[in-house]
């Protein structure tokens, strides 16, 4: 099924909607921790980070590098990690993606997926090192969590792409 071509001279969507939809989707992703489950391990993927990466890789011009910091701050407020952990790790991951943008110029979703996988693994492992003592027995669950997050990323990317169509034209 093909979509009808957009009207040439259609009115552009309001600015608050163009920028509000991405921001709200990232914050909602961070709020995945409010599901009423008492987990005995890190079982949920870091959805806030995944949505943010989805937007960053789909629309590089949407968020500046520093946007990762306030999103990370909100994630720290709801995730139970020590304050500042996601602020630090997400911003560093954004810097790394910026670097990839200048080196890996022509790329496909496969490369984007790899970059997102690297970013998620970096943030989750870094978060574990910051939050839990080295002796803690959380590494197996952490690996599972990273794997699940990597496998889920294409789905998140599809949802982000759908939101990108729905937020209206520029």
């Amino acid at each position: 099924m093909t979509e009808a071509p957009p009207e040439r001279f259609a009115r552009s969507a309001p600015r608050w909607q163009r920028i509000g939809v991405p921001i709200a989707s990232v914050l909602l992703g961070s709020l995945v921790t409010i599901v009423p489950v008492i987990a005995t391990g890190p079982v949920l993927p870091p959805l806030g980070l995944m949505v943010l990466l989805g937007w960053r890789l789909l629309r590089p011009e949407l968020f500046p590098v520093w946007a990762a910091a306030p999103f990370g701050l909100f994630d720290d407020l709801v995730s139970g990690q020590p304050m500042g952990s996601a602020v630090l790790l997400w911003t560093v991951a954004f810097f790394a993606i910026e670097l990839f943008d200048t080196r890996l110029v022509w790329r496909d979703f496969l490369q984007d997926w790899l970059i997102a996988a690297g970013a998620m693994a970096f943030v989750l492992i870094g978060g574990r090192l910051i939050a839990s003592p080295i002796a803690a027995h959380v590494d197996t669950m952490l690996l599972v969590q990273i794997l699940v997050s990597v496998m889920l990323f294409p789905l998140v990317a599809r949802v982000v792409a759908w939101l990108d169509r729905k937020r209206g034209r520029a």
């Binding site: 995945v32 599901v35 489950v37 890190p42 139970g80 839990s132």
Partner: peptide
């Protein structure tokens, strides 16, 4: 009641 937990983190808070 405990209503939610830190299910994305390696810490175990509720």
């Amino acid at each position: 009641r405990l209503i939610s937990s830190s299910a994305t983190s390696t810490r175990r808070f509720a």
